[in-house]
Design a protein around this nucleic acid. Sequence first.
DNA 1: ATGTCTCAGGGACTGAGA
Length: 262
Amino acid sequence: MLKIATWNVNSLKARKDRLLAFLKRHEPDVLCLQELKLDTAAFPLAEVADAGYQALVHGQKTYNGVAILARVPLEQPRIGWGVDIGDAEDSQARLVSAVVHGIRVLSVYVPNGSEPSSDKYQYKLRWLQHLVHELERHHSAKEPLILCGDLNIAPDDSDVARPDEWRETVLCGTEVRSAFQQLIGWGLHDVFRQHHPDGGVFSWWDYRQLSFPKGNGLRIDHLLATTPLARTSQDARIDRDERKGKLPSDHAPVLADFAWPP
DNA sequence: ATGTCTCAGGGACTGAGA
């Protein structure tokens, strides 16, 4: 069984102890991280190695920063986009990928978008189009591949505890849901959805307004796999406990098990 | 009550981003 997980830690400096405890508790084979908020050189490689993991890190201080952790070597590493996309904002560290266990694994942190009327939302929509093109140019849906990360998209109203409160926000707008469907249309399967078809399970709760105790959550963190991998998925879950206790991330980790290799 | 958290600048608090 191969266990793959994704988690937006919202600052690795603030969440390092939680990360090490998470690795010990769940022992994932592959873990994609987002919002490291630190430089590549500041990543705690030695402590992660002591826990039994190698890491491919695309860090950035203050904001962004993504990584992939695995207990085996991370092959064919790719940092950022595979080509120059001609976008002034592509300097943001939001994408990293590698081949692990014969699977192309991508860790992505899609821009939040702030407000629908903002420039940041237009950047989010452009970024999602770049992501679709990246898959089209450099990958095949016939190969085992998994797109993991904080997509900042709740794909369906069943992924939102209070859909009326979130309608036409940057997490639920028709444009971003359409972009999500473009990813699905390329050949990705929503692995978590396969095991929870009715929805009602969430991965993120705003720090503000007591969202977590009130249950005001959304599922915006995803594991999207191509058919060869998705068809081997055995289970998927969200570790809500990671959103509890002292100083949690606002995101909970999403985990899935695969009967891999088939 | 945007009921909070994190980072940076600067050296206490404010603004930005989510």
